[in-house]
Design a protein around this nucleic acid. Structure first.
Lengths: 145, 145
DNA sequence: TATCTATTTTGATTCATTCAAAACTACAGT
DNA sequence: ACTGTAGTTTTGAATGAATCAAAATAGATA
């Protein structure tokens, strides 16, 4: 993958005003294949394509992509930060309380009820984030634990 | 505070089947005065009353209280774990995206809509957790930043 | 193709939290 | 009240996630 070669990932980066580096392209590809991956998982994947990549670079890439709005960072309790390419829509997540697997969940009822608490303790409200907890199909099927 | 002396905190601990140690009593008192405190903040407060307390002890106490259901642990993105005594009700939290302050929010509309996502990606759903993000009164009032 | 600046590498550090062994203490039972 | 023992805390060290900083490198513009 030479720098001049075109690809959807490169164009996405350029259109966001970011430099299209190899690490960024491969990070996006990793997230395409593995939504909700954490930094370490992204690093492991990118390392296959770019053997000299460092973890710090991945943190830098994920931070830049997040700042640019190309990637969304989620931080479920008890898990390192996860990243996904699905941005701009108001979707939520369901986390397996046993293995940490994450699934996407569309907003429950439009978004009005979820976004409108009764009391706000004087806070100015900007967004509402819903995390569902449960068991993924695998863990639900597992015998006893 | 001798071990035989009675106090609401001691009785709460005993009724939960836990030993009423000084560190546990003082941790509960710290959380009564400072809801949503993190482990470090609890440690700082307990240290005033029990000068030989260690941070590890506070982590142990908070873990034991959480396991016993006396304390609830919340982990907002970008913040260390916070602890509160208000348990058993289905309330949510609003976090100041600027300073990290936390307020309580009663569940939006009963809990039916919040708890019923449209799709669950095959997961078995057990609970729904809502985190509101916004600005606390102080930060909203602050000039520019 | 040269240049400039953003990005990555390299190496170290912070913070929150957990682990483990030894010392201690609450409390059930005598 | 005293004692034994299991549960806690202390002491000391280690882990994992993430960030910082300086030097080396590589995009993209002209």
């Amino acid at each position: 993958m030479s720098p001049t070669e075109v690809s959807p990932e490169r164009e996405l980066l350029r259109s966001a005003g970011l430099r299209a580096t190899d690490q960024r392209v491969e990070t996006i590809r990793a997230l395409e294949k593995h939504p909700h991956a954490d930094a370490q998982a992204v690093f492991d994947i990118v390392l296959h394509e770019l053997p000299d990549t460092s973890v710090q670079a991945i943190y830098g890439v994920l931070g830049a992509l997040t700042d640019a709005g190309l990637v969304r960072r989620i931080e479920p309790a008890g898990s390192p930060a996860r990243y996904e390419l699905r941005v701009g829509d108001n979707h939520h997540h369901i986390v397996c309380s046993k293995c940490g697997a994450i699934g996407d969940v569309d907003c429950a009822v439009g978004h009005a009820p979820c976004l409108t608490p009764v009391t706000t303790s004087g806070f100015t409200l900007t967004t509402a984030e819903v995390t569902y907890w449960g068991l993924c199909p695998n863990c639900a099927a597992a015998p006893l634990s």
